[in-house]
Design a protein around this nucleic acid. Structure first.
Lengths: 131, 131
DNA sequence: CTGGATCCTGGGGGATACTG
DNA sequence: CAGTATCCCCCAGGATCCAG
């Protein structure tokens, strides 16, 4: 069928309705790599995290953290102080994935020059007619 | 400033308007990991690719392939046959990133059981009041 | 077969205001 | 400080039709 993959605990993410698509969607999210990347350095409080990930809105950060917490990538510890203190950290499982994601964002940083070149090549090429 | 990062060819993806955010957005896309994952096995024609990545629409596949081609991750070779034949393949740079992305989707597959557990724990916990 | 062009809807995601 | 709730807009993305 379409949704079952197989019965032995192995899934094929290339199938349309494979349940682990959810996980991949979460990990391959606009913000996830950055959030987990920051948490990979050390635990952060909410406001810290918000400032460390430039441009993320409060709503999106909350939403992402909830999802990451639900799937077991992030732990949320509340200290009953006033004003409230909440600390987010990676779980062991979160550390595993963050390694891959950090590799990705690091790669993007250090290879951006090659990509700029590729873009300008592509853009100029699409202007010239067949020559 | 906010957008410049530094002047020596190094960028900080954690800054709001860092240009390599574009790249990360492309790579951390719902479909990119799957498309590059399929192409990592061998070159594919458009229809093949569409069928290999279950659930992707023709529009999204085209769009993704254009972006991936523009940034130099995928090559597009047209054979002047009738009906037209177009073959997509990874560039060397595409092979580099696909390695990271494949690692990610593979991880999602093989650890989905742990995530299922984390979810059910989270869901049942949120039902119980403080005990 | 490989796409481009169009129409249209759902929800992603920002801004703002309010609570504990 | 760390959220939740609401309003609302915009566009990602599916469906459909058409073309080389």
């Amino acid at each position: 069928m379409d949704t079952t993959c197989d019965q032995h605990g192995s899934w094929d993410v290339y199938l349309k309705s494979c349940p682990c698509r959810d996980v991949l969607d979460l990990l391959a999210n606009k913000w996830t790599a950055l959030v987990l990347g920051v948490l990979a350095q050390r635990a952060h409080r909410f406001g810290e995290l918000r400032r460390a990930v430039g441009g993320i809105s409060q709503k999106m950060l909350t939403q992402n953290l909830r999802n990451l917490e639900r799937d077991g990538f992030v732990s949320r510890k509340v200290f009953p102080t006033t004003p409230p203190t909440v600390e987010y950290a990676l779980t062991p499982m979160g550390a595993e994935v963050s390694a891959h994601l950090v590799a990705l964002s690091t790669w993007s940083q250090s290879n951006f020059d090659r990509i700029r070149d590729a873009r300008s090549t592509y853009d100029t090429r699409s202007l010239e007619p067949v020559n």
